[in-house]
Design a protein around this nucleic acid. Structure first.
Lengths: 334, 334
DNA sequence: TTGTAAGCGTTATCAG
DNA sequence: CTGATAACGCTTACAA
């Protein structure tokens, strides 16, 4: 293949193979109506010249970018990687490209990111970001960008959603725990600004405790292992066992477990801990962490399928509820 | 703002505000040569109509997409998230969009992904994928796509690279360990198909042992916690203590640690373990895991800076060597 | 089966 | 300071 200073265009291919643009276009798009002979001739020059169609020009001409925008927060969640992999898998299968839009924990930023999504002319968007509300997302609809929102219940003409089924299962878990371990004080670890899921589960927690007329506590903690670990070391200096912690994610649960252990308490005898969003580390850490789990890879896949259907008007159910699962491990007794 | 069935174009804005396309274009690009009065008038109609310039058309007209392509493997590495965040930070700062290209562990796939990168007309690419070799990457150069390769030493006109400084430090670590713990058999855990870094460190390991005329072993293991854990449980049934393991990543190191502990051995007294790529879980897991570390967030940032310089011909050093660090924790004695 | 020509939504180069 | 008009690279009726 020859080296090229500038990209070779369809026009040069046409000239080099002695046909018109239209014919070349037909060849690269595998449309019929081209003699086998000319097809071959064109394909040869394409190979020889190393011609690659410009996705940009194609997108402009067809007004389809075959690109999906993905909006995710910059937070360092392990499961983002799973989510992206799920999306990628289907995107490849269906021939879509992916544009990444990362928001940085401020509503303002999140909105400016949406502007970019619109500018970028994507054929659809998958939004997994708690900062964005229905009002913001409706922007996308104004520009005819179909959208699947993850972890937020919004259903409109152009918006579908995947919600997480957490509350029901969580209530069962807490209820059962309160019954089996009535002497353990249930403590919900509140992390500031950790999103919708945490808020919902917190409310759920409170409701169950209230219903069962059970005393409970909410403790603020930092979303970093090191800080939380320190905090809980202090905590366990004063407080002793008889507690049941519900932590947002594995690393926080681990902070409690390690701090408790280092304070001479036993897990799960004295303190029990569970994590709301388990990762593979839940089973690696010792004692292994009882956790709820949600398969972000599957969610990514589902989001893509839904988006494609939505874009083609074939999406019947605008909402898909993804149930979480529960895995009891060694950090709780029952 | 009015709702619109189709996107409003620059043409409509021009008509609505009684000026020509050119003037509107000047306004949205903040070029001078526009009366304050007309500027305001145009901006008002833009707001009223909810006009957003089409990135596609702009890209085509200027032949600059202001988009950077990122090529990463689909493997579930925790640090990918850090890497992306680093890249994102600078991309935002400099006004670039990001396109994501995920390869799935096959050279063939990796190549077809590169095709897509070319088609997509990105202004540059950051490639972090072990499947791709210089030969493949040179493709990009043929299409004038500047490129920064991570973890692969390639320097050409249009390709710069970030390499990881691992070997030197690792040799020091091993050397020192062999001296302080001469009775421990050093064992390198080989994982199939885990990339260049692992291969290089493995060679490094062998060389040091040879130089010091020290017996060593290489053991194959699976890149999954569960499998490895099982394998090492069996392993420790026959073998006893007196070993020093070098694992690729935290989860594998944890598999060894947990298996050893569950077999009645003590870490680090009987068996010592270190991990080549530490994550935050290295300090969470108990005993905490001695590890080498590399700051993928910083690497992401640096890659972006280098890429931007490379694209503008201002990159002086085509290669940047990122030194790894070493953190001794509780899974090793010295 | 193939070619012509009019878009797609911008930018950019000229004149005015 | 403003407005025509020709690109940018491709698709797609419509003709031939």
């Amino acid at each position: 293949m020859d080296y090229l200073k500038d990209r070779v265009t369809i026009y040069e291919v046409a000239k080099a193979s002695g046909v018109s643009l239209a014919t070349v276009s037909r060849v690269i798009n595998n449309q019929g109506n081209v003699t086998e002979a000319t097809r071959k001739r064109v394909q040869d020059t394409i190979a020889r010249l190393g011609y690659k169609p410009s996705g940009l020009a194609q997108a402009l001409a067809t007004s389809k970018s075959t690109t999906i925008g993905i909006v995710i927060p910059s937070a360092n969640y392990v499961y983002i990687s799973n989510f992206l992999n799920g999306i990628t898998e289907i995107a490849k299968e269906k021939g879509y490209n992916l544009s990444l839009f990362v928001t940085s924990h401020s509503k303002e930023d999140a909105r400016s990111v949406l502007e970019k999504v619109i500018k970028s002319h994507v054929d659809g968007a998958i939004v997994f970001d708690d900062e964005l509300e229905e009002e913001d997302l409706s922007q996308l609809s104004n520009y005819a960008v179909p959208c699947i929102v993850v972890n937020n219940r919004i259903e409109t003409e152009k918006i579908g959603c995947i919600t997480f089924g957490y509350e029901h299962l969580l209530r069962e878990i807490i209820r059962s725990h309160l019954e089996h371990e009535p002497d353990k004080m249930p403590i919900f670890l509140h992390v500031h600004n950790c999103g919708r899921l945490l808020e919902r589960t917190e409310r759920s927690f409170i409701r169950v405790c209230d219903e069962m007329k059970k005393e409970y506590r909410i403790i603020n903690c930092d979303d970093s292992y090191t800080r939380s670990y320190q905090d809980f070391l202090e905590f366990f200096e004063e407080e002793k066992g008889g507690k049941f912690f519900i932590a947002y994610r594995d690393s926080i649960a681990a902070a409690v477990i390690n701090a408790a252990t280092d304070s001479g308490l036993n897990v799960p005898e004295d303190v029990e801990v569970m994590s709301l969003i388990g990762t593979k580390y839940a089973s690696i850490i010792r004692p292994s962490i009882t956790s709820m789990n949600i398969d972000m890879g599957e969610i990514g896949k589902r989001a893509m399928y839904m988006l494609i259907d939505l874009a083609t008007g074939k999406l019947n159910n605008k909402r898909y509820k993804f149930e979480s699962t529960y895995t009891k491990r060694d950090s709780t007794k029952e």
